[in-house]
Design a protein around this nucleic acid. Structure first.
Lengths: 207, 207
DNA sequence: CACTCAATTAATAGAGTTATTAAATAGAGA
DNA sequence: TCTCTATTTAATAACTCTATTAATTGAGTG
């Protein structure tokens, strides 16, 4: 009954590989380095996963799916004001990124060059959120007609939200370096920008 | 007088290398591939530039400097309304990115891992724009006092502008793939988001 | 014409990479 | 104890990459 550690080596490899891939990207991480970090022989990685690509996919296919699913995961927002819903969506998206701060860069780097993996995500984007999209769109149009929100296309709003949120985390490593932020300052900035992004976006939507 | 072609091989190497580095990143581009694309022997690259790092730096030290300088390059905006100035700044920044759409990704990828190169940029950021920053800040505060613009910190405004503009170009390769945009659709989207970003930001600044 | 020197190439060293294979090890069950 | 199986390792094949070196070419100069 050693299964509580669940094949510790395989699990270790998965965890270490995920960390290294996120930190340094796919090409910059060798199976040799993964093995050294795990503390096992390099061949063991190929025993469990056969190829490096396979290892990467095993780790990230699910992760990407989860990640993109997270974007569209809505809490119970039935009887909320549209503006409050929007605020919650922006904050949820931001928190998702904050909990996975290296994901955007990895996605941007690896998925730009590997269109095949994008198919998974394309599917996700067509099933679940299509409903949500039309639903949100209706509400948005309604708010616009009521004069609560200025004229804007939902697609443009989404691009702006995602853009504002994502950009912070992809730029963070540079900003951190450029202004020699320590951990606290960085944390403060991330906390501050969470409110700032919400504020900036909602302010823009006033009629 | 063959100098109009200006040492064609060296020049070719620089041009091809720049293109490939921008397309695929530093690690993913080998000197072998550069040589093959140029149509010369791989050793020639090392003859001219000794190391791959050297080649990269030769190309991009200036380019990065230019790029960041471009961000702060102001036209004659003496007797303009603040809002119009801001609009011009956003548009100039956007156009700079549009003319160098691959630069943000390259900077984000390469400079995150090579802090030494950031020193160049740190200098640039401390000399020229410090003046500009205080100048802009005064104007912004003045506008806020006049009630023309809502309360906001200049730093937050800048982060929002840069973020909105940069994010479009770093996300573009994914968006393009995900929604199978053809060249025209892509061009349309880029053109449309230029106006949209300006609009979105200026709308947010209303008191 | 012989010389020089920059440009260019062929060859290769040396390090690092992924992936495979065969052997060693260890734990479970007969 | 013996055997079977899953795990792990050592060794190494087969590449690819950067960088160096020695040899070759070719254009100009005295």
């Amino acid at each position: 009954m050693d299964n509580n550690i669940e094949s510790s080596m395989e699990q270790n490899i998965l965890e270490v590989a995920e960390r290294l891939f996120l930190e340094k990207g796919f090409a910059q991480t060798s199976t040799t380095e993964i093995a050294k970090t795990v503390g096992c022989n390099q061949a063991l990685i190929h025993y469990y996963f056969r190829t490096k690509d396979n290892l990467f996919n095993t780790i990230f296919e699910n992760k990407f799916k989860q990640f993109f699913q997270g974007v569209f995961e809505m809490k119970n927002m039935e009887n909320m004001q549209f503006i409050d819903k929007l605020k919650l969506i922006i904050e949820s998206h931001y928190d998702l990124l904050r909990n996975n701060p290296k994901m955007p860069s990895l996605i941007l780097n690896e998925l730009s060059r590997k269109p095949e993996q994008l198919n998974l995500i394309r599917d996700k984007l067509q099933s679940i959120p299509q409903v949500l999209f039309t639903l949100l769109n209706e509400e948005l149009q309604h708010e616009i007609e009521k004069g609560e929100i200025r004229e804007i296309k939902l697609v443009d709003l989404i691009v702006s939200i995602v853009g504002m949120n994502v950009s912070l985390f992809v730029m963070m490593p540079i900003v951190e370096n450029l202004f020699s932020l320590n951990e606290t300052q960085k944390e403060n900035m991330i906390e501050h920008r969470r409110a700032e992004n919400v504020d900036f976006i909602l302010k823009s939507l006033r009629p």
